[in-house]
Structure formats: C-alpha cells, structure tokens
C-alpha cells in the first residue's frame, strides 16, 4: 500500500474507525508495521499463551492422555480376555473329545464283557441242550431197540406158529413142536 492511499478518504476512514491521525498514518500502509500497537498485541498474546498453556497442561492434556491410555488398556485387556476365553474353549473341546474317546472305550469294554458273559451262558445252554438231546436220543434208541426186539420176538413167535401150523398140516404128528421151534430159531439166526 503506497503513500497515495494516505489521502482525505484514508483520513476519513481512520476517523471513522476512531484511530487518531498518527495511527492512521502508519496503518494506511501495513498495520502490521504500526509499532504503536505492538505492546498491546504482545501483552495480550502472552496472557493468551499462559492461559492456553495452563488449560492444556493442567486439564486438557492429562485428561486426553489418560483417556487414550485407558482405552489402550481396555483394548489390551479385552484382547487378553478373548485369548483366555479362546483357550478355555479349546480346553473344553479337548476335554469333550477325551470324554468321547473314554466313553467309546468303555462302551467297547462293556460290549466285550457282555459278549463273553453271553457266550459262557450260551455254551452252557448248548452243552445242556446237547446232553439232553443225547439223553433223549439214547432213550429213543433204547425204545427203538426194545420195539425191534419185541418185533423180532413177535416175528419169531409168528414164524414158529406158522411153521407148526404148516408142518402139522403137511405131516401131522410126525414132527414135534420142540424141533420145529429150534429149526425156526436156527433159520432166523442164520
């Protein structure tokens, strides 16, 4: 801003602003170079900086720092807790798997035992049944033998009677009953 701005209009502006002539002369160029306002600016700047510094260092920064630290701590704790829970879940799964395997083994053992017990009973029952069957078969055979014997006897008796009848019919009185019986018996044995 050159000197020509320091015209009546600039003076009027300065008056309107309530700045006295000396200031208007300087501020018509660069207000930044108006040294008369420096002390004022510097005083207020220092007051401002001190206030900001105390607000920040006493209240704001410790608070924000603690909030950030607390958050970091919370996150770390949560991650640790999550790790812990995950480990617990893994442990629980392992325990479950182990229980399952144990139960399987136990079941297998029980099945084996039961099978063996049943086998013993079965063998016993089979042996008993075999014995009974053998006894029945022996009885039956005996009965069959008796029946066969009686049948053979009956057949011998019938044969003797018939032979006697035939002999007496063919040659009555010539041959006695005793010899006929002996002959029949001999014939049947042969």
């Amino acid at each position: 801003m050159a000197e020509h701005n320091l015209s009546p209009e600039a003076q009027g502006m300065a008056d309107a602003l309530g700045v006295d002539g000396d200031h208007a002369g300087a501020s018509a160029g660069m207000p930044q170079l108006d040294f008369s306002s420096f002390d004022n600016q510097i005083v207020w700047l220092l007051i401002t900086l001190v206030v900001i510094y105390f607000v920040l260092s006493r209240v704001a920064l410790p608070r924000i720092g603690s909030v950030l630290a607390e958050r970091a701590g919370t996150i770390t704790n949560d991650i640790a807790a999550a790790e812990d829970l995950k480990q617990q879940a893994i442990d629980a799964e392992a325990a479950y798997e182990k229980a399952l395997v144990d139960a399987r083994a136990e079941a297998g053992r029980i099945v084996g035992e039961t099978k063996a017990a049943i086998q013993v009973d079965l063998d016993k029952a089979i042996a008993k049944a075999d014995a009974e069957i053998a006894a029945r078969a022996a009885e039956g055979e005996k009965a069959i033998a008796a029946i066969r014997d009686s049948a053979a006897e009956s057949a011998a008796t019938v044969a003797k009677d018939i032979a006697k009848d035939i002999v007496s019919a063919v040659a009555p009185g010539k041959i006695d009953a005793k010899s006929i019986t002996a002959a029949v018996t001999a014939k049947m044995k042969g």
């Binding site: 502006m13 602003l17 501020s27 207000p31 108006d34 600016q41």
Partner: peptide
C-alpha cells in the same frame, strides 16, 4: 489491509 488494524474495542 484495513482488516488488520488494531483498534480499541470500547471508545476511541
């Protein structure tokens, strides 16, 4: 540059 003028807030 007028925006940079330092002036009293109250009075003249």
């Amino acid at each position: 540059m007028d925006q940079f003028i330092v002036k009293p807030l109250f009075g003249n």
